[in-house]
Design a protein around this nucleic acid. Structure first.
Lengths: 237, 237
DNA sequence: GGTAGCAAGATTGCATACAAAGCGCGCCGC
DNA sequence: GCGGCGCGCTTTGTATGCAATCTTGCTACC
């Protein structure tokens, strides 16, 4: 499976082209349209987006910083293949940061924010009602958006940026190690978390958040895997 | 600690040339040899390091991701000029993350780690004994190294990378808003924090850490500042 | 038959060339 | 004298070319 199998719409007049390419690649990685280990050749990506390698390099560097792409000198860039250990660290980090975000957000929740949250939940419900692989992808995405909205609301831009990275890497991990309908079960959690926030019950909201994250992680099939080199060989094929 | 020890972004992969320039600029910014607001022209930096603009752009992009440099499209890159609000957010983030790092580190403290910590403290003491501007810079750096060592020990590479960014931005903030000998007073704190860690007294270590961070922040001269445009105009001159 | 060496192809790293967008300065009109 | 406007100079954004390095498949030798 090659990246060329996934035709990206070459957007015309984007301001920053590297940013646009980064976004598209990022979405493709999170949605697992690009499998972990897939090589992202500069020339190939550039041809797809109709830009020069210069722009592609810039986009790949950004993704490398986000941990979604792994770059090796003189060898190229590949879609990241996070190890179970990395996955655990990502969720550990989320368990640390998100309760703090809830604490900050609960103080700043405005009606407009509630409306935005509700819209996100409705979107999730719509997706849950449907079936299919692409729907499941969108579901993972929507689930992440809920947490990003929480981060945005907390008002700490530093932590918000960290959360963007953590959510993206979580999505990749879920796509990699997730079992069947696991990500769906988290949806109900979002509703109750939001409910607790609206009732200003911080303790409950934090408890629910932690459980929610535990839920997601528990549903992963982490590490009955075999030796590393073998595993990597298999997954990159 | 050498450059190779930094778990920074792409560990094995990224271009050495750009990485080296990034490190040098980073150090210069943290040490305030480059004042906030200073323009970092691509051609100028390239001439200094005897590389082409391509490499410089790569380094600047990395620094921009770290929050040490602010880039504006078609205008150029400038040393970041963090607002008091940003400074607060950085310290808020540290108050959140560092106690968790202590909790993880206390379980993994080995004799070799103790030795490394002790060496850092001795380094700080040596610097404290001296006088001069360059010494004070080195002091800020050494102070940061203590916290980075804590992060390294915790064994979570995600959080470790976050801490690298937070420490760097803290150093910039301290250089910007710090009062006289403020950063020095923190040194004694490091010793007692390490002591608590060695005695496996997590609660004490976390309390001391929080107080330490509070100390640093309290010693900043945050936000008696005037209107933004004026302030920026003054600081960039 | 297997392995080491080698050469050709491909891909990245870096430099340079060109195009486009700001910015400043001087000119002109009011 | 002052404000608006246009031109050119500087700086960034992008594309392309060349050299270095890695990969890979072949060949020759053990």
């Amino acid at each position: 499976m090659s990246i060329a199998d996934y035709p990206f719409a070459p957007l015309g007049g984007t301001e920053d082209r590297a940013m646009a390419i980064r976004e598209q690649l990022r979405d493709a990685i999170i949605d697992r349209r690009l499998a972990p280990g897939t090589k992202l050749g500069e020339a190939e990506v550039g041809a797809l987006f109709e830009v020069s390698r210069t722009v592609v390099r810039s986009a790949l560097q950004m993704l490398s910083f986000e941990g979604l792409v792994r770059s090796e000198r003189n060898r190229g860039s590949f879609v990241a293949n996070p190890s179970p250990e990395e996955a655990r660290q990502v969720f550990d980090s989320r368990r640390l940061i998100e309760p703090a975000l809830a604490a900050a957000a609960i103080e700043r929740l405005r009606p407009a924010d509630r409306a935005r949250f509700r819209a996100l939940l409705e979107q999730e419900e719509r997706l849950m009602a449907e079936r299919g692989a692409s729907v499941r992808r969108a579901e993972i995405r929507a689930s992440g958006d809920f947490h990003l909205e929480l981060a945005r609301l907390a008002g700490n831009t530093v932590l918000e940026r960290f959360m963007h990275e953590l959510v993206a890497r979580s999505s990749l991990v879920i796509a990699l190690y997730g079992r069947t309908g696991a990500s769906s079960c988290g949806h109900a959690d979002h509703g109750s978390i939001l409910g607790a926030l609206e009732r200003r019950d911080l303790g409950l909201a934090q408890t629910l958040l932690i459980h929610h994250i535990n839920h997601i992680e528990a549903d992963l099939d982490l590490r009955p895997a075999t030796g590393l080199g073998l595993r990597e060989a298999l997954s990159s094929g």
